[in-house]
Amino acid sequence: MKKFYYLMRMAFMTKFAYIKAFWFNIFGTAVSILIYYFLWKYVFRTREELNGFTAAQMTTYVIISRVLSSQFSGGIDREFSEWVYKGNIVVELLRPVPLLYNLFGKRIGEFLFFLLFKGIPISILATLILGGTGPAGAGQLLLFGMSVLVSIVILFWIEVTVGLIGFFTLNVWGLTFTKSALLSILSGGVVPLFLFPDEVAQVLNYMPFAGMVSVPASIYLGKYDWNQAVQFIGLQIIWAILLGLGVLAFYRFAIKKVVVQGG
């Protein structure tokens, strides 16, 4: 646990070293919130509600979805793949902790940084300024937090998979780009899932991606009752475990084929 704490701390400190660049990152997210806010404002000009969402709830959905999906373009996959194609993976493999443990510590450290410097302040500020609604209740807020936590694990497995594919393609730029675009759409990060055709929305609701934006946002807004919320989080946990097992198997296979480039 101590090891994990120190790995996390290192990721946090590394992020902190780039705090100036991070202001621009925050600025980018703020702008994207504004764009979506005005888009929805236009939609709500002629109506009171859309599929049970009031204008204020939609504003909150926009804030939560933009902030959560801004994580999709970050993460450890880029760095992981850089280790692979620059050959630094050899250094990481020689550390006395398993590579995935190391990466997970790093990912959680980055997540905490995200939460502290972007997630929480931006969400609160934007809600106050743009007039969104608060959480449906203390219980919902708690479940929302749990859902986000589980979704980080799922996101981590996806990022590891993208990085691992780098073992074979030796470069993942195209792939990371595809990943963030697909995740944004499938998770409900761009538009709420209910705007998809019914059948598609039904399927997407039960996919692991929904857990990254749609499920936590719906829980936060009180769109799910207690039972539903717990069931969706349970489903997320099952996905996290299943994906984890799959990625572990893929990892064991891929690591055998590691070709370390350069020297």
């Binding site: 120190y6 290192m10 400190m13 590394t14 070293a17 550390r95």
Partner: peptide, 22 residues
């Protein structure tokens, strides 16, 4: 041609992490 340390933090911090890992 490679480093086992963390690029952005003081060397001592890297050593501290190595201490815990090892």
């Amino acid at each position: 041609n490679r480093s086992v340390l963390w690029w952005d933090v003081p060397v001592m911090e890297s050593y501290r992490v190595l201490q815990k890992l090892y």
